[in-house]
Design a protein around this nucleic acid. Sequence first.
DNA 1: GTCTATATCATGATAGAC
DNA 2: GTCTATCATGATATAGAC
Lengths: 175, 175
Amino acid sequence: MALFVERGYFGTSVHDIVRASNVSIGSIYHHFGDKAGIARALYAAQTARMDALIAGIAARHPGAAARCRAIVEALFRLTEDDPVAMEFMLHVKHREFIPDEKPVCSSKPFEAMRRIVVEGIARGEIRPVDVMVASTSLFGSALRMITARLDGVLPKPLPEYLDEVWEASWRAVAA
Amino acid sequence: MALFVERGYFGTSVHDIVRASNVSIGSIYHHFGDKAGIARALYAAQTARMDALIAGIAARHPGAAARCRAIVEALFRLTEDDPVAMEFMLHVKHREFIPDEKPVCSSKPFEAMRRIVVEGIARGEIRPVDVMVASTSLFGSALRMITARLDGVLPKPLPEYLDEVWEASWRAVAA
DNA sequence: GTCTATATCATGATAGAC
DNA sequence: GTCTATCATGATATAGAC
């Protein structure tokens, strides 16, 4: 995953992975079938992890505001704790190894986030605007902050910006 | 540019470019030196174009609110008119062909956007929050909407979402 | 299941005629 | 400046011993 993040999918050779993992190329092909299989396995594991994260938050918090804030907080922490995983999810183009596409923002965790927004609108917590507009307004700032942090242009760790980011994001959509 | 966007920098071979452009490989190397030179030339032209766009808007509009709204509108129109150029700017990793990095969000057009935000804070138009937080709050939603549109998951053209997106974004930071 | 050795082909880049 | 032909390398993937 680190190699794919650092150098891209096509920029990483299977021999690079052999060197980095101390596993022979024969074993790798035995287990993953082809190069794309390696990336697919990583992607599946990562979306499952994110999905569990979101589902757990939805179960523990009532209401859209608390849930969305907890999601932003979790994403901020995850970025600091495992930046490679975060970058793999957000910035590696998985069209390169999953030919039948379907973009990240249509993956299960992102769908779960939108469901929370839909419920928030239905309950009158969130202003009745287009679901995508509400979702990007709630999470767009946080995702951009994450990108900035991964690019090394944010001086402080993300959690220190959490209160300001969340207050602004919530103002954008609060009913 | 279309090839780099479609298949990535490493996923595009110089021979692919030869086929798509009907120019010989000799001429290409004569003009651009190496493969990275082709991508660098595209990137330079594109940042210059974006920079001129932002500068023109800053010159024509007074105040942060009018300027930022005009920027979002211009980005939405540009995405519809030239999606390849927009995707090249936003989603192609130029670390792959510019080794000494410096991320997109540190490029001239993005810096110009942040300057507008700083002035807006100074004039009391925008709440006094961290500059990055204010910038991502103002433009993060729009950029996410652009990404969604480029990914083919938005049913309507971006300009139809402009009013809703802008109202939410401005609420987030308005003093 | 893991390994080494190898086959096959595409890639970035160059040479040199015109 | 443009072109064709070619090189050297490194890529994905396989074969087959253990």
